[in-house]
Design a protein around this nucleic acid. Structure first.
Lengths: 198, 198
DNA sequence: TAAAAAATTAGACATTGTTCAATTGATCTG
DNA sequence: CAGATCAATTGAACAATGTCTAATTTTTTA
């Protein structure tokens, strides 16, 4: 078959991303197959290469979509939340990861070849999620140490990530930890207490 | 070719593990190939399946080897270290991961099929590393809260892991964090301060 | 209407994990 | 020592993957 006009380039891109994300969410990164995605949307594998250029680019786009969903989820939880916003953010971190296990895990399972940087676009999405945490931390920090909000946010993000990661990959279960979320909150509280946060 | 007596079962197992670990360390989990390992030791792929039974079992054994090395590295650093032992342990955590990037990363990239548990042996190795941290935390904790050492150790392990993970996967670089190790140490100190550790 | 451009496909390629019948060497038995 | 038994090793076969490219077909342009 040759050129056909079932879908515009943009529609095709959206189609692949949608089916790809469904697939990734169902089977996980290890079993994900670009060929299978092509089959499901009724196009051939070559078309995916036309649109995305490579397997890596496709996966980066899929992970980008996950980051979009994650950010929206986070902001949704925070909207209309008066107090305990930081705890709510940590809960949202966990809940998203638990609710989108495979997609969230793929964010970290997939790695670009050594030395390759993700696109500016992708980095922006990661920065956007970080910015939410920076904002929330700045809000509870005393004014005189508020320039510490960014480094602290990066560090607390890493701490929460570690807890969430261990919760999902079974390490915590192996070690008998029953409430990873509570532990993560406690560590964040520990740090904030030291900075005299309210 | 049929049966040959170049190596005993145990020697063969050691041979595969050694070459496999070399391979894993060089090319990383994503590009690791059991076939390639077989080729390099001069046996056929079937032999690896005879000895390990499956690809998953082989990888679990390789990761087990990494855990052994890691534990030895940790204890080696701690031996003869009088003060600042916890900081030394965190440094060792980072240094091992940085010095064995691919092998360390494979510990988390590789996952058993859903629901499958690692062997008792493997779980023991993870527990052994945890036990070191429990011991070191218990040593600095006031006696009246020393039953908190285990949960605290699990949680701090997760925090340090998150920092180390972000340092290696590029997240910290993306966010402008220049000293992940210092950040990890600071978070651990925050938590210990709250428990009145010395 | 004819020529140029673009999109889509199908197939070839090298690799992978996995399985298994056949083979070959070692070991036991009489 | 010869023959039977046993166990380890192989290599080929399979299905699947990412990747690339020549051919085909449709759309657009001249």
């Amino acid at each position: 078959m040759g050129r056909r006009s079932d879908h515009s380039r943009e529609e095709l891109r959206a189609l692949i991303l949608e089916e790809g994300h469904r697939q990734l969410s169902q089977v996980g990164f290890a079993r994900f197959s670009a060929r299978e995605v092509a089959k499901r949307i009724g196009y051939s594998i070559g078309t995916i290469y036309n649109v995305f250029g490579s397997y890596d680019a496709l996966l980066l786009a899929l992970n980008g979509r996950t980051l979009d969903l994650w950010l929206a989820f986070l902001e949704g939880r925070l909207a209309g939340c008066e107090e305990g916003r930081l705890d709510a953010a940590i809960e949202a971190y966990f809940d998203f990861a638990l609710g989108h296990r495979h997609a969230w895990t793929a964010l970290y399972d997939f790695r670009l070849p050594e030395g390759a940087l993700p696109s500016e676009d992708y980095r922006g999405k990661v920065a956007a999620i970080t910015a939410v945490i920076v904002r929330e931390i700045a809000a509870v920090l005393p004014p005189d140490v508020c320039e510490e909000a960014l480094p602290l946010a990066r560090s607390l993000l890493a701490s929460v990530h570690g807890h969430c990661f261990f919760a999902l990959n079974g390490t915590f279960a192996m070690l008998g930890e029953g409430d990873p979320l509570a532990a993560a909150k406690a560590r964040v509280a520990d740090a904030l207490a030291r900075f005299g946060a309210r």
